[in-house]
Amino acid sequence: MNRTEKIIFGAGALCACTALFFLNPTQHDFMPRCLWKSMMGYDCPGCGFQRALHAALHGRLLEAAHYNLFLILVIPYLIALIVSDWILTGERAARWQRVTHSQWMLWGYVVLYFLWWVLRNVMGI
């Protein structure tokens, strides 16, 4: 990631968050729905993230967790990854990456991802 790419990424993330702050996905039909859910009728692991982000950006954290419980883990992990990969450099970055890029972390994520996918559909969470 060079400087330009970081700025583009930051601007994109900011735009997405601004849009999700002002647009409530439950009230606008044009907000994109999950292709998987539209076709299969089951929730995918990411389903509800727009509604959850909208709620979280308005400070309604419990409601956000209700839309997608998995995001409680993913958002902090994603932030830690961005810090370790794109913000820090040198020795400090290496120290962070030993945790964020560890095999345990990566395979744990994959396992939890599928576990969450099954559980949310079976238990309706």
């Binding site: 292709l35 998987w36 692991p45 992990y77 994520y109």
Partner: peptide
């Protein structure tokens, strides 16, 4: 990680 969450 982003694509697993955002892109369904």
């Amino acid at each position: 990680i982003l694509t697993t969450i955002c892109c369904c």
